[in-house]
Structure formats: structure tokens, C-alpha cells
Design a protein around this nucleic acid. Structure first.
Lengths: 221, 221
DNA sequence: CTTTGGCATGTTGTATACAAAATGCAACAC
DNA sequence: GTGTTGCATTTTGTATACAACATGCCAAAG
């Protein structure tokens, strides 16, 4: 068997186009408010207009595009209120994720998370921001997976993608960063103790802090 | 001017088709698991295949359809676990809705809700199930609106639509019904007292009960 | 009798042609 | 000079033709 190419189970064109567009939006190649010309984009992506329009519909359902009648699609421009609203919902969902995970987590999973935590603290000690973000995200994803609720995971992921269109570069001041790392330790302790309520509170607070950071980056674009 | 036809501001075809399909799915005309033949459906809806396929994409994003590569779309069949997962998320969201509403609710809105509550109790006294459901829904929608978070509202509505594909006829036994009405009174009291935490707890418990009722109807199809 | 290969048919996937609507520009009236 | 109307062009919306793929049937081999 050969794994170098993937001869089988190739992605459908509309999905591929949607994925490509998502990236372009998140990377900022397609700026918020930009109008998307169908012919131009279809040539750029090497796809005809039909599958491209299906991709538009998918992204519109995800909240990354808005479609105006007879006027095509354009990239959404999130207001500060939109961000606040999305974070409110995400905080609630992440809290639920923590509650469920605390009920179901096994000792093996706690050990795994503690290992990730150690990795993250190492990245923190070396001021290695990219790795810190990567591991941070891995921890949250892992907790989400332990919660074992696919609908929760999917709902959360959709909201998260929507926000990523902001491409906020969190301006982490050292004090905040230290605090975030300490919070993470508390999270895993709460998880190990199967204390769902406490974990929920930590996660909700965690996201409130993150919202503030994001809003600050929005004021100064 | 002639109002008999609607010459102006007509809905786009894909949206119209999606709306029509949603209804067909929820009403059970298109059963769970049914495969949707594009040509047949496009003739039935009086629309060509292109806008119909866009409608498919929208419904798939909403979770009402699944699309298999080269094998078209089919109506989702929800498992008991899917329902459990959806309710877990909805309970969390409705809880958030209550918390936010408790912070923001005005005296005028409390009065309005008390009026609805009285109407609902009247419907309950007369064992008028359809009206009871209608007013019940109106109360929950109102609380959601008071929470003033459009993203929350939209997320909740999407999940709710997905579940409506079940078309569950809640088999309300009188004891449960009485309990539900009493719970509603508590909800509005908590709201009037701006007690967000208590309102959240009531709403979460409320949905847990509803889940049980729904799961019971699923065992005996 | 079972299994496999190939063909006929139907269905989905993509591109494209055509229609309808919006947009921009220029000429004309005031 | 300003505002408005009409036309040319661009862009979106829909239908349809064609290609690729899946499905079911029948025949032939084992």
C-alpha cells in the first residue's frame, strides 16, 4: 500500500473550495467586507462557478460569509458586539465541556493532560509563543474530546472558526501569560478531582479574560 | 399596484427551496434515512437542480441532511445519543440565555412574561395542549430575545430545528404537566429577582426533564 | 448453485450557456 | 453645474448539457 499520494477518497470539489476559502479568509487574504467575484474566484481556484457557489452556501451557514440577493457574497466584518456575543456562547460551551469531561475523565487521560501541561510550561519558560499556542490548543481540544459530545465539539468548532477570521495576535504581556499558565494547572487539578463545577468556573473565567485581550486588539487595528 | 402576486422582494430560489425542504423533513414527508433524488425533487419543487443543490448544502450545514460523495443527500436519522448530545448543548445554551436575561430584564418585560404565564396557565387549566405549546414556546423565545445575544439565539435555533426532525409528540401525563407549569412560575420569579444562577438551574433541569420525555417517545416508534 | 465480470441504466458532479439584475458612465435637460 | 434618464457592461441567478460515477442485472465460469 502506498500512502504518499491519496489515490482514494478524494474530497469533493465544493468541500475543497470551501476549505480553501476558509483559509483565505482566516489568513486575511480575503479581507472582512470584501466582495467575492464568482468568475474571478472560480478561475483563481481552478473550479467552475457551480461548485464554488455551493462552497459559498456552506461558508454562509458557518457565518463566514453573507450572501445578498443579486449582489453576491461578501466576507463578514465582525463588530465588537459580535465578538462579545460569540465569546459568551463559547464560554458557556467550553464550561459544559469541562463539566462533562470532569465526569468522564480517566486517570490515564489526566496523566496525558499533565504531560501536555508540562510541555506547555516548558514552552512558557522558554517564551516560545508558537509552541505555547499549539499545546494550549491541544489541551483544550483534548478536554473537548473527553467530554464525548460530538454536537458540542462541532458547535464549538464552528464558532471558533468564525472568530478566527479576526486573526488576532494576542498581545500577551508576561503577567497575563503567567496567570494563564497557572489557570491551566488549576484546570487540570479540577479535572483530576472530578470537580465539574469548579472546572466550569475556571474555563468561563479563562474565556472572559481572552475576550478582553481580543477586544483590546480590535480597538487598534 | 397589485398585491395578489408578489412582484417585489421575492425570496431567492435556493432559500425558498431550503425552507420548503426543511418543512418537508420536519413534517415527516421526507423520512429519516430517505435518499433525495435531485431530478425528482427539482421537478416536485418546480426548481432546477442548481439551486436545489445549494439548498442541500444549506440543510447539510444545519445538520438536517448528510451528503455522501457521488451518492447524493439523505435525511439524517438521529440516534438516541445524538438527541442526548443535542439536549446537553441546548440545556447549556438555554441556561446561558436565562443568566443573561436575568441581568438585563426590565420590569415591563417581567410584566409581559407574567401575562404570557397567565395565558399559559389558562391553557393548562383547560387542557388545551396546542395553545399551551404555542405560549410555552413564546415564553422561551421571549427570554431568549431579552438575553440579547443574536449568536446565542441563532445557535439555539439551529439545534432546535435539527431536533424537530424527530416530530416527537410529547406524551404529557398530567403530573408532569402540572410540574412543568409550576417550574415556569419559578422561572419568571427568578427572572424578576434578577437571580441568574437560579434561573439557569431551573432551565437546565427543565430541559433534562424534556430530554427524558423525548427519549421515551423514541423507544416506541 | 454461487460467484464474478461486464454491460446497461440511472444518478450525481461539473461546466457552460443564457437570462435577469445591478452597476457605472455619459448625454441630456433643467 | 447638478440631477436624471437611458444605455452598455458587468455580475449574479438559473437551466441544461455532458461527463464521471454508482447500481442492478444478466450471463458465463467455476
Amino acid at each position: 500500500m502506498d500512502g504518499s499520494h491519496f489515490p482514494i477518497a478524494q474530497m469533493a470539489l465544493p468541500e475543497a473550495a470551501a476549505e480553501r476559502l476558509r483559509t483565505l479568509i482566516i489568513e486575511g487574504e480575503l479581507a472582512p467586507g470584501a466582495r467575492l467575484n464568482e468568475r474571478e474566484l472560480s478561475e483563481r481556484l481552478g473550479v467552475s462557478r457551480t461548485p464554488l457557489r455551493e462552497a459559498f452556501r456552506m461558508l454562509a451557514s458557518d457565518g463566514l460569509l453573507v450572501q445578498l440577493p443579486n449582489r453576491g457574497a461578501q466576507v463578514v466584518a465582525l463588530s465588537a458586539d459580535d465578538v462579545r456575543h460569540a465569546f459568551e456562547v463559547m464560554a458557556s460551551l467550553e464550561g459544559l465541556s469541562g463539566e462533562l469531561a470532569a465526569q468522564r475523565v480517566t486517570d490515564a487521560e489526566v496523566a496525558e493532560l499533565r504531560a501536555l501541561q508540562a510541555e506547555m510550561e516548558a514552552a512558557h519558560a522558554q517564551r516560545d509563543l508558537p509552541n505555547y499556542y499549539r499545546i494550549n490548543r491541544a489541551i483544550h481540544d483534548r478536554i473537548n474530546a473527553i467530554a464525548a459530545n460530538p454536537i458540542l465539539t462541532q458547535t464549538f468548532r464552528t464558532l471558533n472558526t468564525r472568530l478566527h477570521a479576526l486573526r488576532f495576535r494576542s498581545n500577551l504581556v508576561p503577567a497575563k501569560w503567567d496567570h494563564a499558565v497557572a489557570e491551566h494547572r488549576d484546570m487540570i487539578d479540577a479535572l483530576a478531582a472530578h470537580d465539574g463545577v469548579r472546572l466550569r468556573d475556571i474555563l468561563v473565567r479563562h474565556l472572559k479574560t481572552k475576550l478582553q485581550a481580543v477586544l483590546e486588539t480590535m480597538d487598534t487595528p
